[in-house]
Design a protein around this nucleic acid. Structure first.
Lengths: 104, 104
DNA sequence: TCTATTGTTCAATATGATTGAACTATTGAA
DNA sequence: TTCAATAGTTCAATCATATTGAACAATAGA
């Protein structure tokens, strides 16, 4: 059984968030999750089909450990939810600003 | 003679900025430069006196290449200026948001 | 039960960070 | 002008992190 580790809201840090969002792949994943109302399987969230499964898994782990994403196992796939309220509560305006600028 | 390489405003990228700001040392440097009206020598900007000179030099190179800082040689020391207007012009609100949240 | 699907973990390699040592360039004083 | 002090850069070595293929685990459905 795989257990997912999520930081509590208080343990979310600004460097952790920025570092997680600084990767183009992960930024696309997060953007995609906002579009899909914050819930997505790992495969659906993949911004690039050529990316190795293990790399994708690694990126989701970074997003989890940064506190951006909550992962739950649902059947055969993972259900990933953006921790929007918690992140906004701790760092107001950050996600909104970054995601707005992420278009180009 | 040492020549400093700075990206043009158009070449500043969001991942580059986020990645540069994701490091606690560099975030402190940038914060310090805002407090000092955007101009500072490398030594003065050091957030930690125990840090090796070469590490500090490396951090300033990252900040330069991200487009956050402009470095000019002035006598024996370097004059580092925050490229506030250019960064704000290209990614409006980003610096303000990040720096406001950087306090804690 | 057998197979396909979804994702994790592991080991190996490649890429980036950190530091001490050596070097360059400027300033100021003898 | 020569010498030492100051401020940073560059280089090479070491250490940490990212990336990927291969093997594995767990669930769903035939």
């Amino acid at each position: 059984m795989t257990q997912f580790v999520h930081p509590s809201k208080e343990d979310i840090t600004l460097p952790g968030l920025l570092s997680a969002l600084a990767d183009p792949m992960r930024l696309k994943i997060v953007k995609g999750m906002v579009g899909e109302k914050g819930c997505m399987s790992c495969c659906k969230a993949a911004p690039c089909p050529d990316m190795a499964k293990s790399t994708l898994s690694h990126h989701f782990r970074i997003l989890r450990e940064a506190g951006l994403v909550r992962t739950e196992k649902r059947g055969v796939e993972n259900r990933n939810t953006l921790r929007l309220d918690e992140v906004n509560d701790r760092f107001p305006g950050l996600l909104k600003t970054v995601l707005k600028l992420a278009d180009h």
